[in-house]
Protein backbone atom coordinates (compact mmCIF):
# COMPACT_ATOMS: atom_id res chain seq x y z
CA UNK A 1 0.00 0.00 0.00
CA UNK A 2 1.56 3.28 1.01
CA UNK A 3 4.68 1.44 2.07
CA UNK A 4 6.11 0.25 -1.20
CA UNK A 5 7.00 3.24 -3.35
CA UNK A 6 5.94 2.97 -6.93
CA UNK A 7 7.73 4.97 -9.55
CA UNK A 8 5.63 5.66 -12.58
CA UNK A 9 6.73 7.74 -15.52
CA UNK A 10 4.02 10.08 -16.82
CA UNK A 11 3.39 10.29 -20.49
CA UNK A 12 3.56 13.72 -22.14
CA UNK A 13 -0.23 13.73 -22.68
CA UNK A 14 -0.87 12.79 -19.05
CA UNK A 15 1.49 15.53 -17.90
CA UNK A 16 -0.25 18.17 -20.02
CA UNK A 17 -3.67 17.00 -18.84
CA UNK A 18 -2.67 17.10 -15.15
CA UNK A 19 -1.12 20.51 -15.60
CA UNK A 20 -4.25 21.92 -17.16
CA UNK A 21 -6.45 20.27 -14.55
CA UNK A 22 -4.36 21.64 -11.69
CA UNK A 23 -4.40 25.12 -13.17
CA UNK A 24 -8.20 25.12 -13.42
CA UNK A 25 -8.46 23.84 -9.88
CA UNK A 26 -6.05 26.44 -8.57
CA UNK A 27 -7.94 29.26 -10.30
CA UNK A 28 -11.14 28.13 -8.63
CA UNK A 29 -9.50 28.03 -5.20
CA UNK A 30 -8.07 31.52 -5.59
CA UNK A 31 -11.40 32.96 -6.78
CA UNK A 32 -13.24 31.39 -3.85
CA UNK A 33 -10.60 32.64 -1.47
CA UNK A 34 -11.03 36.16 -2.84
CA UNK A 35 -14.80 35.91 -2.42
CA UNK A 36 -14.35 34.84 1.20
CA UNK A 37 -12.08 37.80 1.91
CA UNK A 38 -14.51 40.14 0.22
CA UNK A 39 -17.47 38.82 2.24
CA UNK A 40 -15.50 39.23 5.47
CA UNK A 41 -14.63 42.76 4.41
CA UNK A 42 -18.32 43.48 3.74
CA UNK A 43 -19.24 42.23 7.21
CA UNK A 44 -16.74 44.57 8.83
CA UNK A 45 -17.76 47.40 6.53
CA UNK A 46 -21.45 47.36 7.51
CA UNK A 47 -20.47 47.53 11.16
CA UNK A 48 -17.96 50.34 10.68
CA UNK A 49 -20.44 52.25 8.52
CA UNK A 50 -22.73 52.27 11.56
CA UNK A 51 -25.97 51.13 9.91
CA UNK A 52 -29.02 50.32 11.99
CA UNK A 53 -28.77 47.08 14.01
CA UNK A 54 -31.85 45.76 12.19
CA UNK A 55 -29.84 45.93 8.98
CA UNK A 56 -26.49 44.73 10.29
CA UNK A 57 -27.66 41.55 12.08
CA UNK A 58 -29.50 39.87 9.20
CA UNK A 59 -26.81 40.88 6.70
CA UNK A 60 -24.00 39.44 8.83
CA UNK A 61 -25.93 36.22 9.44
CA UNK A 62 -26.61 35.93 5.72
CA UNK A 63 -22.94 36.44 4.90
CA UNK A 64 -21.99 33.86 7.51
CA UNK A 65 -24.36 31.36 5.92
CA UNK A 66 -22.84 31.93 2.48
CA UNK A 67 -19.36 31.50 3.91
CA UNK A 68 -20.23 28.20 5.60
CA UNK A 69 -21.52 26.81 2.31
CA UNK A 70 -18.45 28.06 0.43
CA UNK A 71 -16.19 26.61 3.08
CA UNK A 72 -17.85 23.18 2.94
CA UNK A 73 -18.17 22.93 -0.82
CA UNK A 74 -14.99 24.57 -1.97
CA UNK A 75 -12.31 24.21 0.66
CA UNK A 76 -13.57 21.01 2.24
CA UNK A 77 -14.24 19.42 -1.18
CA UNK A 78 -17.90 18.60 -0.82
CA UNK A 79 -18.29 19.72 -4.46
CA UNK A 80 -16.14 16.75 -5.50
CA UNK A 81 -18.94 14.62 -6.96
CA UNK A 82 -16.57 11.81 -7.94
CA UNK A 83 -15.27 11.21 -4.43
CA UNK A 84 -16.67 8.00 -2.98
CA UNK A 85 -19.84 8.20 -0.87
CA UNK A 86 -20.18 11.95 -1.40
CA UNK A 87 -23.98 11.58 -1.35
CA UNK A 88 -23.89 9.93 2.07
CA UNK A 89 -21.45 12.52 3.38
CA UNK A 90 -23.61 15.47 2.31
CA UNK A 91 -26.70 13.79 3.74
CA UNK A 92 -25.03 13.42 7.12
CA UNK A 93 -23.63 16.97 7.09
CA UNK A 94 -26.98 18.56 6.26
CA UNK A 95 -28.95 16.29 8.56
CA UNK A 96 -26.65 17.31 11.42
CA UNK A 97 -27.03 20.96 10.44
CA UNK A 98 -30.84 20.72 10.48
CA UNK A 99 -30.85 19.12 13.94
CA UNK A 100 -28.38 21.63 15.37
CA UNK A 101 -30.43 24.47 13.89
CA UNK A 102 -33.63 23.14 15.49
CA UNK A 103 -31.94 23.08 18.89
CA UNK A 104 -30.56 26.57 18.36
CA UNK A 105 -34.02 27.82 17.42
CA UNK A 106 -35.77 26.24 20.42
CA UNK A 107 -33.11 27.41 22.85
CA UNK A 108 -33.61 30.95 21.55
CA UNK A 109 -37.40 30.83 21.49
CA UNK A 110 -38.57 28.70 24.40
CA UNK A 111 -35.85 28.55 27.02
CA UNK A 112 -35.01 32.18 27.44
CA UNK A 113 -38.52 33.41 26.79
Amino acid sequence: MGHDTQVQAKSKKQYEYDRHHNAVHMRKQVINFAIMIFLTFLAFAVVVADFSAYFIKPVILLLAGVQVVLQLYSFMHMDDKKASHMGVISTFVWFGAVIAFTMFLTFLTIIWW
Partner: peptide, 17 residues
Amino acid sequence: FMVWAHHMFTTGLGATA
Protein backbone atom coordinates in the same frame (compact mmCIF):
# COMPACT_ATOMS: atom_id res chain seq x y z
CA PHE B 1 -35.00 14.54 16.95
CA MET B 2 -37.93 16.93 16.69
CA VAL B 3 -40.00 15.81 19.67
CA TRP B 4 -37.88 15.89 22.82
CA ALA B 5 -39.94 18.57 24.57
CA HIS B 6 -42.89 16.16 24.97
CA HIS B 7 -41.08 15.05 28.12
CA MET B 8 -41.31 18.61 29.39
CA PHE B 9 -44.90 19.68 28.72
CA THR B 10 -45.41 20.52 32.39
CA THR B 11 -42.27 22.67 32.76
CA GLY B 12 -44.21 25.63 31.39
CA LEU B 13 -42.90 26.02 27.84
CA GLY B 14 -46.17 27.65 26.88
CA ALA B 15 -49.08 26.64 24.70
CA THR B 16 -47.37 27.25 21.34
CA ALA B 17 -44.32 25.13 22.07
